[in-house]
Structures are given as structure tokens and as C-alpha cells.
Design a protein around this nucleic acid. Structure first.
Lengths: 341, 341
DNA sequence: GTGAAAGCGCTAACAA
DNA sequence: TTGTTAGCGCTTTCAC
């Protein structure tokens, strides 16, 4: 049987409360402390976090919810968050929600039953109702790489509007006007699209709604969507994919249509992951400062958990355009532009 | 305050033990059950998993330890394991150990304090002492994508010997004899190397120990190691990287030396991840049946947790060689072969 | 079928 | 400084 606080108390010849005090670094006479520590070591005693949590203390566990933990950008975030959380003594339980409202709901509910100390919602969360509820019940939450202006909540994200703006500007400077977007169903994509629209508008290019499509988080879906876009009547000459996985999918879809990249089609990603650094060709993409974002997010969450929060804040970090080989000058004359009535 | 079993009992006009029975599907009169269920719903009562675990029940949590959760192969496994575990009602807490014995130790210790129901050790675990201890203390554990024949433990892995054998055979059939290996510090790599050695031996090629190097899990380290190998006196004409991330690193290192792939150098990976499907050039690699492996691993672990295990088993699954564009005919005449004395 | 009560391992007043 | 005791929310005998 695992040793309990009673065994230690008995062995050390003290009461259990003294043992508890020793284990929690509360004032105890030096010699007593020594005795207790020895007894604990001999028995290889490890306090049960379960029991202590039951009396009101923390579980030292954080719930990390994201659409898909196997997505390289998310996995990288998970890793960074894991490390920073560990520095504060927290573990991570991971949950992939696939952008499904029900999965979000059941995970949050389950983790609350397990009394996690807080939640990190990374990369997209559909069910705003759940977020509101968490806030109302004062459960610490933070949005990572995602932001809903309407929610009074801590958030750390990259400035996706600028990201979208810069990447679209880059494409337009290469002569593209028929630019499609393969987006995810999250606020980051929405913001990127907003940046993209602004650029089009600034350049008096009509935005074609049929060129903006929504994908789930798989490369596979993006591949099919790219195929669809390229098979349409006035196909795009450039495709902005809202993350590197989707960009790879787009690349695969384009290749099936025998497109040369970037001669026939420019493709861009988002994230500057290992995926884009070494794809064929290397992707023009947007770098996101994952380490700093995750570090900050964990800090803010832990502050909230420890009730020394200085107030909610939304932090926007700057992205950086990385130009590689997947974008090039537009070689197709554009009828679209003349379409503008 | 969150509702407790007492609140429900009071509202339903029954005792807490009756409520407990209802919540655990134990025999209770139909009408009583109905009353309790209604009260529970009205109060939005959710039993505390903490409290129930304290009385001896499960925490429904599994510890997933791997060298690095951000590695695409591992992330894919984590995702698969997460899904299969959820089907059985378990959550996953993830821990990246970086092949560090101390991290393994502290994570295992911490998770045991949290009373996780079992452990999945995926993709490499250095500290065998910890494994023995877990086994001795009857803590459910399973090795995933890793196998230590000496341990009486459940394990699900791919037949890495065959994987190494096939990939080396492929390279030799292309005329390569100076074949280097960039390995990780885990049993999978060891097995792959064993397969590689067997092929060399079968072909009467001397194995050069200086061509076998150990990397940590980063592409960056692999890049440097590749640079070193290629800068040596009798550089290899082919490099087997023991996973796709290392292969990408190798690719980057080779490119720095202005190597053309596969003309000047053949490179292979392991894992057939999104990374290798779309690298430049696409990698010849070995496909690992991750879904089936993870499904089986979770099943075995859950059986053990539920104490209906039919006995320990080590399952070896078959890998599949995927030939793509990163390997080609060896164009360098080989002095090495003649070296054999 | 139902309830009273002990106990899981710990913390936190409160006393001593 | 140390010990006693009453919970935390639940499960589980064991009577009724």
C-alpha cells in the first residue's frame, strides 16, 4: 500500500498536521521537520494531490483544448505551453475538439469534473456560450492564437489582420488579383481574411466570395477544396492557405491539376513550421512567435489561477512575412480586374 | 458553489447513498431513480471525479510520455491515442521528456501523485529502472513504438528491424555502400540499425561505426550531424534518418553543402508523415501503421487498468517501404568496398 | 430498496 | 510549536 500521511506521522512520532505543515513549508521546529522529512524519505512518501485538491487546493492541472493536437502549429504550441506550465508546476491534459461544439462541451465539462485549475483554448473554439459560462463562474481561461473581442477574457494572439494584409500585399505586388483563400473556421482566419479584403479594397480589386472557402483542419480537405477552386471557371492565380497544413494540402491539390508552383499558381501558408520550411517548393508564409506567445499565455493564466491577476488583457503580437519559393509573378492576364463595373 | 451529492439528496428527498447508487447505475427503484435524476439535472450536478477517485475509483486519466510531443510522428500518435482513450472515457496528460532520465522520473512521480490510472510510454524511454518499478508496483504501463525485450510489459510497435532492413536493401540495390545512419536514442532506432547492419553483412559490406551517429529529437541537431558526416574524409552517399524530422534536418544540412538530392546524396526518413510526403524532394520513407498501433495500445492498457488483462503481450506490426524521390542511383564510385580486407 | 456511518488522504481552524 | 478535530465529496459495507 502507498504510504499516507498517517504512516509518516507515526514513524516520525508526530501528528499528521505536523507532517502536513512540513510538506507545505509551514513553520515547524527544525528538528521536528528533520524527523518528519527522514520518515517521509524512508517510506518514500508522496502526498496525494487528489486528497489535497479535495480540501480546496489546486490540482495543478491545466486543460489544453485545440482543434487538433496533431497539427504541427498546434503541436508546437502544446509543447511550448507544456514546458512553461511545468515551470509553474502544472501538467497539461490535451483535448482535440475538431472544431466540434459538442466535443468542446463534453471536454470542458469532463475537465471541470476533474477540477482542472484553468483552461487554455488554443487555435479556435466555436462554442462561445461555454466561454461565457466559464468566465461567469470565474474559471481561469485564456485564448491562445485566437481572439473574440466580445469576450472579457485574457487572450494572446498574433495580429492576424496584419498577417493577412502583408501576405495579400505581397501577392498583389506580384501581379495577382484572383486570389483565393482556404480558411479555417476560427477567428484567426477571419482576421486574416479581413486583412486580405482590406488590401483588395485598397487596390480597387473586387473581392470574389466564391474564392473564399472554409476547410476543416486536414490537409486532405484543403486538397479537395484547392482542386475545386482550380477547376472553376475563373480559377485563382494565387491561393492563401490559412495555415501550413492547409497549404500543403493545397500544394497537393494543385499538383494533381498539373500546376507548376509558382509559375502557374502561387501558394502561401501561415505559421512557418517545419512543414513550410521544407515543402516543395518552400512556402512563402507568415512566421508566428509561438514561444513568446505561449510563455505569456501561461503566465497570464497562472496569474489568474493564483488570483494575482492584474486584470484581463488581450495581447497582439506581430507576425513576420517569410518569402520563399512558392510565390511568383502572375503570368496570367486578368480579366477579372476589367470586370469591375 | 458547485452542487454536491448532498444537495441532490436533499432536493430529491433521499439519502446520499441512494444518489450515489443512481449515479453508478446500481439497483434503485425506478421512481426513486427518476426523482434523483431530476434533482440532479435541475441542479446541474456533476459528480466530483476527485472525490470518487479518493475512495478508490479510477481517475480516468492516462499519462502519455514521449520524447517530444511536437514531433509530427509523436503528435500524430498522441492524437490517435487521445481519441481511442476518450472512447473508453479516459483523458490524456502529455509529458515531453526529451530523452532525459530526470524528466522521465519527475513526470512519472508527479503523475503517480495525481493517481493516473496508467502510462503510455511512446517513442522512447531511457530510464528502465522506472519501468521496472512501475511493473513491480502493478501500475498499468504500455510501450508504444518502442520495445525492450527484457521487460515483462505490454508493447505495441512496428517491426523496426524489418523497416531498417528494407530501407537499407533499397539503398544497396541502388548501388550505395557508404550508408550513414542518423539515429535517435531509443530502441526503435537500435532495431533499425540492426536491420541495416544485417543488410550490410549479407552484402559483405563493412559497417563503418563512424557513419552511425546519434541525434536528439530536433531537426536542427540532425542538420549539424549531417553536415559533419558530409564533411568527413569518406562521406556517405546515402543517409538513413531514423524519423522524418531528422530526415528534414538532414536535407537542410545536405543543402548547405550544396548537395543535390538524390543525385549526390540519397536520404531516407521513417514515418511517412505529412512532412515526408511534401518535402523537397518527397522522402523515401517507411510507413508506420499509427492508427492500428494506437488503437491496440489503448485497448491493452485499458484491459490492464480494468484488470481483465489476458497477460502481457508484445505486438509487432509490419512497416511498409514508401519509395519517393529522395533516393537515387549511387553515382559515386566506392573505394570503401575495396577496403574490405 | 434505502439509509446511517465509516473512511479515502489531506488541510485548516482552533486548542493546547 | 504541535496536536485535535472537523470537514472536502464521494463510495461502500451493513443494518433496516
Amino acid at each position: 500500500m502507498k504510504p499516507t500521511i498517517y504512516n509518516v506521522a507515526e514513524k516520525a512520532g508526530v501528528s499528521i498536521s505536523t507532517v502536513s505543515k512540513v510538506m507545505n513549508n509551514q513553520p515547524v521546529r527544525k528538528e521536528t521537520k528533520q524527523k518528519v522529512l527522514e520518515a517521509a524519505k524512508e517510506l518514500n512518501y508522496k502526498p496525494s494531490i487528489l486528497a489535497s485538491a479535495l480540501t480546496g487546493k489546486r490540482t495543478s492541472t491545466i486543460g489544453f483544448l485545440a482543434p487538433d493536437i496533431s497539427n504541427p502549429s498546434i503541436a508546437e504550441m502544446a509543447r511550448a505551453v507544456e514546458d512553461f506550465a511545468l515551470e509553474h508546476g502544472f501538467n497539461l491534459v490535451i483535448c482535440s475538439t475538431d472544431f466540434k461544439s459538442e466535443k468542446e462541451d463534453s471536454y470542458v465539462s469532463l475537465l471541470r469534473q476533474k477540477r482542472v485549475d484553468g483552461f487554455i483554448l488554443a487555435g479556435g473554439f466555436r462554442n462561445r456560450g461555454i466561454i461565457s459560462e466559464l468566465i461567469k463562474e470565474a474559471v481561469p481561461v485564456i485564448l491562445l492564437s485566437e481572439y473574440y473581442p466580445a469576450c472579457p477574457i485574457n487572450a494572446v494572439t498574433v495580429n492576424n489582420f496584419i498577417g493577412g494584409y502583408e501576405i495579400a500585399t505581397h501577392l498583389i505586388s506580384l501581379g495577382h488579383t484572383r486570389i483565393a483563400v482556404i480558411a479555417e473556421e476560427n477567428s484567426s482566419s477571419q482576421e486574416r481574411i479581413r486583412g486580405y479584403r482590406k488590401v483588395l479594397q485598397d487596390h480597387n480589386i473586387r473581392a470574389r466570395e466564391d474564392l473564399i472557402v472554409i476547410s476543416d483542419s486536414s490537409a486532405e480537405h484543403a486538397r479537395r477544396l484547392a482542386g475545386g477552386l482550380l477547376g472553376s471557371l475563373h480559377p485563382p492565380t494565387a491561393i492563401i492557405a490559412c495555415n501550413d497544413v492547409l497549404a500543403i494540402g493545397t500544394l497537393l491539390g494543385a499538383r494533381e491539376k498539373n500546376m507548376k508552383i509558382p509559375e502557374n499558381l502561387s501558394i502561401t501558408g501561415f505559421g512557418n513550421t517545419l512543414l513550410s520550411k521544407n515543402s516543395n517548393p518552400p512556402l512563402t508564409t507568415v512566421e508566428i512567435p509561438i514561444q513568446s506567445m505561449c510563455s505569456l499565455a501561461v503566465d497570464l493564466l497562472v496569474e489568474e489561477i493564483e488570483k494575482r491577476s492584474k486584470g484581463k488583457q488581450a495581447v497582439l503580437m506581430l507576425p513576420k512575412l517569410i518569402i520563399q519559393k512558392s510565390t511568383g509573378v502572375c503570368l496570367v492576364s486578368d480579366l477579372n480586374k476589367e470586370d469591375v463595373s
